[in-house]
C-alpha cells in the first residue's frame, strides 16, 4: 500500500480553520459545562428544598440517560417548533455543555462530599461562616479531587465535537468527510483527522499532568 499525504497540502488552510472551530466548540462547551456543574454540584451537595432538588435531578437524569446525538438534534431541529431557533454553533455548544455538565456535576458533588468533615469543624471553630467555609476551605480541596476527572471530560468533549458535524458545522470531522468525498483517499485523510484530535487531547493530558505536579503544591 502506498501512502501519499501530499494531496492534502491544498486542504491545509481548511483543516486549520476547521481545527479552530473544533477547539472553539470544545473549549466553550467545557467552560459552560464547568459553570453548570459547579452550580448544580454545589447545590446538590447540600440539603435542598424539593422545588430545587427535583428539577436538578430531572435535568441530570435526562441528559445522562439519552444519547448526545439525540440531544443535539432536539436542540437544533426540535426547539424551532417552540420558536427557539439557534445558530448551529450555539446549538452545538449548548448541547455539549448541558450533556457534559450533567455528568460533571456528579463529579463536583462527589468531590465536595469527599472533603473531610474535620475541615468544616476546624473552620467553624475558627469563626468561618458557612459561605466562607465553602469558598475558602472546601472548594479548593474539592477542585484538587475533581481535577483529573474533569480534565478527562474535557478531553472526551473535544472528541465528541465530531458529532456536531451533523449540524452542518465546518468542524474537523465534517471537513474531513468533504475532503474524502473529493479525493476518495479515506486512509490518509482519517489518519490526519485522528492525529489532529490526538494532538489536542494529548496536549490537554500534558497540561493536566503539569497542573497536578507543579500547579498544585500541596498534598492531602
Amino acid at each position: 500500500m502506498n501512502l501519499d499525504f501530499s494531496f492534502l497540502v491544498p486542504y491545509i488552510p481548511q483543516l486549520v480553520s476547521a481545527s479552530k472551530v473544533t477547539l472553539f466548540i470544545g473549549v466553550a462547551s467545557f467552560v459552560l459545562a464547568l459553570a453548570v456543574s459547579i452550580v448544580t454540584g454545589v447545590l446538590r451537595s447540600g440539603s435542598l428544598p424539593w422545588s430545587v432538588s427535583v428539577p436538578l435531578g430531572i435535568y441530570i437524569e435526562v441528559f445522562r440517560g439519552t444519547p448526545l446525538l439525540i440531544q443535539l438534534f432536539f436542540i437544533y431541529y426540535g426547539l424551532p417548533t417552540f420558536g427557539i431557533v439557534l445558530a448551529p454553533v450555539t446549538a452545538a455548544v449548548l448541547g455539549l455543555s448541558l450533556n457534559s455538565g450533567a455528568y460533571m456535576s456528579e463529579v463536583v458533588r462527589a468531590s465536595i462530599l469527599a472533603v473531610d468533615r474535620g475541615q468544616y469543624e476546624a473552620a467553624y471553630c475558627l469563626g468561618y461562616g458557612r459561605v466562607q467555609v465553602f469558598v475558602h476551605i472546601v472548594l479548593p480541596q474539592a477542585f484538587r479531587i475533581a481535577l483529573p476527572t474533569l480534565m478527562n471530560y474535557f478531553s472526551t468533549m473535544i472528541k465528541e465535537t465530531s458529532l456536531v458535524s451533523v449540524l452542518s458545522i465546518a468542524e474537523i470531522t465534517r471537513i474531513g468527510n468533504h475532503i474524502y468525498a473529493r479525493t476518495l483517499s479515506p486512509f490518509e485523510i482519517y489518519i490526519t483527522i485522528g492525529a489532529i484530535y490526538f494532538a489536542m487531547t494529548y496536549t490537554l493530558a500534558l497540561v493536566t499532568r503539569w497542573i497536578e505536579k507543579k500547579g498544585i503544591k500541596w498534598t492531602p
Partner: peptide
C-alpha cells in the same frame, strides 16, 4: 473558643 483536634484538621491547601 479555640479547639485542637486529635486529627489536627489543618488546611492542607494552605
Amino acid at each position: 473558643v479555640g479547639m485542637v483536634f486529635q486529627q489536627f484538621n489543618l488546611f492542607p491547601h494552605y
